[in-house]
Design a binder for these strands. Structure first.
Length: 811
DNA sequence: CATTCCCGCCACCGG
DNA sequence: CCGGTGGCGGGAATG
């Protein structure tokens, strides 16, 4: 009995059209005339056309009661629910901004006005804007104002989201859920154990964080408001699901489960679930209006369930522009990030108790604080002398340039307006094309080319970029982004913030569609392949579900090529060493646990191997104490793993970015082909004998989150092999310390840099490659096919999912 | 009855 | 203390 039902039935308070315009709604009489405003208006028309009859019928009904008014003709009609739908509303909204070619003004959005024009309550506007914001199609400027960006950043955003999704292991999570379902159905109730085990393992839902783009990160301090709450975040996650799943179809049910912690028992949360679904519908409606997804029905054994299919642009891992180099990946930039020490967290949306169990590992991070203020200043001075070096990335500039420029710029390009007709093809093209084709806003000074475009695909690491300027309290993590070297920031939930990590892109192995493995048939494999072809060989590796061999081959190729441009591994190593020196030893161990390149949470259990409990406690503490000056500082290099350098190399974790420090090495080298990773995983279970390096890899993977610890590695032993710290206790501390120390650390680091660390490592290094080729290494992937057959739970590496017939019906 | 999802109360929160 | 935000869930409209 939460909120009582005070629900008064007065629903029609009405701004109703029928009545006279009270306040002069702008659109006073305008009922009938379709909105003139947009050229694209047609779309909406069509849409609305959807169910005319119903509406009409409805109308009459409505009129009857109290009428009197009908004096006039207009049939303004009553609304009919459909006409008021969010989707339609969203279309109207989009129409407004979408099509305007040059009008700069159009780029500003004033909620009130729009609400009025569209005649809807303000509340609804928030729904729309929030999801648009999650895609970075708009950003909030100030109180009632937003700026329209259109699809400019869409491609980047999607890439980022995809990456994030991969890091979150969404693919696996989905799998898991499906599996669970399956068990339920069939298996009577067979193994409960399994379930439990699973639950432990999995769930890492992580975070609640909001992924941001560099250019628009600002939210002025003041302006920035509520911590990101769900809708925004939920929307991003939802999108991530599409991007990572192979048939790009996501059912509401699954999405809801994932978005919820999913960890908890199900029963009780019926209501929670329901609410989640409701929200998803809201989001879905908006996304549909954007033509990013479309509703379909998935028919599985158990009946058909509502689902959505991604119709947006394919996300390509990256792009091209071989121009890069310039900025060579490496950059050292002083970043400062502030973590808000205090937590501002009040409540979390996702109440998962489990949360605590997870340790955060953010992708890159940074936590420093301080400089932030500078940044602000900088803003004022465009040409500020600050040399943020950021060499590579040019994005910095833009950043401070600030919104103004952006705005202006943005205003200009809006294209998009893809009219419905051409749809898909167009869509795909447009998305992509637009992105690339369209120059950034002129206003923004874009220093040279974008960062190099790694020819590799997504899998590759990207050059790290500059760091983002920080902002206020929210702690952000930056993700280096692929092309363009743009960095993205992720806002972490405050509580999690303290943990720092290094991000190494290399880790992002993509889980890759394991369709084969799972046994799920991808309906559209054809489609995929087509796409792939289309795109050119370039990106395919990542996505193609193709057969292992092929994929592999490609992967290999890629890596090679990539190697050229890659980073200088040696340097990286050196740096690392340096760091190590600096840092005190004790931490080292933990560090390994705590920080690892992937972002997001990893269950401590995994990390520690067993001693999760302790970890928990620490974690909590960490949160609380946020910053106390610690005496110890050591290095924050925390990210460094205790593993020896050589080992690291072996593992291919070469590039460590020490974000906190601001020293970033470009990861480059890595390019671990997704396929490989996959296979590797599989193989792991299978073969017990692994060479050290492999174990290392395993370890790494687990930590990273690629592999759920429990699942993949059959025996814990693996962990043991790893040279990691043997001390159990340390783990805990690390996070805490890290946090505390960051500031110091960063300083130290900087100092170091000044002194002797090579700043611009440019030479390419041959490193990574070798790793891959190493015999015994991951390459050996035999396994893909091997496992698929058995469905037993045993093979943990892969979840076996019964093949179900999946039919997608269009609607 | 089931699926969709509109509506708007009301808790927050920054100013 | 106010007004913008936006979680949230009842329950109406639709299917």
């Amino acid at each position: 009995a939460p909120r009582s039902a005070a629900r008064t039935p007065l629903k029609q308070a009405d701004p109703q059209p029928g009545c006279q315009p009270l306040a002069t709604p702008p659109r006073a009489g305008g009922g009938p005339p379709a909105e003139p405003w947009t050229p694209t208006a047609n779309l909406k028309v069509l849409i609305s056309a959807a169910s005319p009859e119903i509406r009409s019928r409805e109308q009459r009904r409505g009129l009857r009661p109290q009428e009197q008014l009908s004096g006039d003709e207009d049939e303004k009609a009553q609304p009919s629910r459909k006409e008021k739908s969010l989707g339609l509303l969203c279309h109207k909204f989009l129409a407004r901004y979408t099509a305007c070619p040059g009008a700069a003004e159009s780029s500003y959005i004033c909620l009130d006005e729009v609400a009025e024009e569209l005649n809807v309550e303000r509340r609804r506007m928030y729904d729309i804007v929030n999801v648009l914001e999650s895609l970075h199609m708009v950003s909030r400027l100030a109180k009632n104002k937003y700026i329209w960006h259109g699809r400019h950043n869409l491609a980047k955003t999607l890439q980022t989201l995809k990456k994030a999704g991969e890091q979150n292991k969404y693919t696996q999570q989905i799998q898991m859920i499906k599996k669970r379902e399956y068990e339920h159905e069939f298996d009577l109730d067979g193994e409960r154990n399994e379930e439990e085990a699973r639950s432990l393992v999995s769930n890492e839902h992580s975070e609640m964080c909001f992924v941001e783009l560099p250019g628009m990160e600002f939210r002025a301090a003041s302006v920035n408001s509520r911590k990101d709450k769900s809708l925004r975040v939920m929307s991003q996650k939802f999108v991530m699901l599409f991007l990572v799943s192979t048939p790009q179809i996501v059912s509401l049910e699954v999405a809801a489960k994932i978005l919820i912690g999913e960890d908890q028992l199900e029963d009780l949360d019926k209501s929670r679930f329901k609410t989640k679904i409701r929200r998803l519908y809201d989001i879905a409606n908006v996304l549909s209006s954007l033509e990013l997804i479309k509703k379909v029905h998935v028919t599985e054994d158990r009946g058909r369930k509502p689902a959505f299919k991604w119709t947006g642009p394919e996300v390509l891992p990256n792009t091209q522009d071989p121009k890069l180099e310039t900025t060579s990946a490496t950059c050292i930039s002083p970043i400062s990030e502030s973590i808000s020490s205090r937590e501002q967290c009040s409540k979390n949306l996702f109440p998962s108790r489990v949360k605590q169990d997870f340790t955060r590992h953010p992708s890159l991070i940074k936590l420093v604080k301080s400089i932030e203020s500078d940044r602000r200043k900088i803003q004022s001075a465009p040409t500020s002398p600050v040399k943020i070096s950021t060499t590579g990335t040019k994005q910095n500039l833009p950043v401070y340039t600030s919104k103004m420029s952006q705005l202006a710029a943005v205003a200009q390009h809006q294209l998009e307006g893809t009219p419905k007709t051409a749809k898909e093809m167009k869509m795909a093209l447009s998305g992509y094309a637009l992105e690339h084709t369209v120059p950034l806003p002129e206003a923004v000074p874009r220093p040279h080319a974008q960062a190099a475009a790694p020819s590799l695909k997504a899998a590759l690491p990207q050059p790290l970029g500059a760091l983002p300027r920080s902002h206020g309290s929210a702690s952000r993590v930056i993700l280096p982004h692929a092309h363009s070297g743009v960095s993205y920031a992720i806002y972490l939930h405050p509580s999690q913030a303290h943990t720092v990590t290094m991000y190494s892109p290399s880790f992002m192995l993509q889980p890759l569609p394991c369709a084969n493995v799972t046994g799920i048939k991808s309906i559209n494999s054809k489609v995929l392949s087509e796409i792939t072809n289309k795109e050119g060989d370039r990106h395919l590796a990542a996505d193609g579900p193709g057969k292992a061999p092929t994929a592999k081959e490609r992967a290999v190729v890629k890596s090679e090529s990539s190697s050229e441009r890659c980073l200088k591994r040696p340097q990286a190593i050196q740096e690392i060493n340096l760091i190590k020196k600096c840092r005190s030893d004790e931490e080292s161990l933990d560090a390994s646990v705590t920080f690892f390149p992937s972002g997001y949470f990893i269950p401590l259990t995994q990390c520690t191997h067993h001693g999760s409990k302790a970890g928990l406690s620490n974690k909590e503490k960490a949160g609380m104490c946020s910053l106390q000056p610690t005496t110890a500082y050591t290095s924050p290099a925390a990210g460094v793993i205790p593993v020896t350098a050589s080992e690291l190399e072996a593992v291919n974790i070469p590039a460590l970015h020490i974000t906190s420090l601001n020293i970033m090495l470009s990861p480059t080298s890595i390019a671990a082909p997704p396929v490989l990773s996959n296979s590797y995983l599989n193989s792991s279970n299978t073969s017990s004998a692994q060479n050290p390096s492999s174990s290392c890899l395993n370890f790494t993977l687990q930590h990273v989150g690629l592999m759920p610890a429990g699942m993949q590695v059959p025996a814990n032993p693996v962990l043991q092999h790893v040279p990691i710290s043997s001390k159990p206790g340390n783990v805990n501390c690390s996070s805490e310390n890290t946090n505390l120390q960051e500031e110091k650390v960063s300083k130290n680091i900087l100092q170091l840099l000044d002194h002797g660390v090579p700043k611009e490592p440019q030479e390419p290094q041959p490193t990574t490659e070798s790793f891959f080729r190493t015999p015994g290494g991951p390459n050996t992937a035999s396994s893909l096919s091997a496992n698929s057959g058995g469905n037993d739970r045993v093979s943990q590496g892969t979840l076996y999912i019964p093949q179900r017939k999946l039919e997608v019906s269009e609607d």
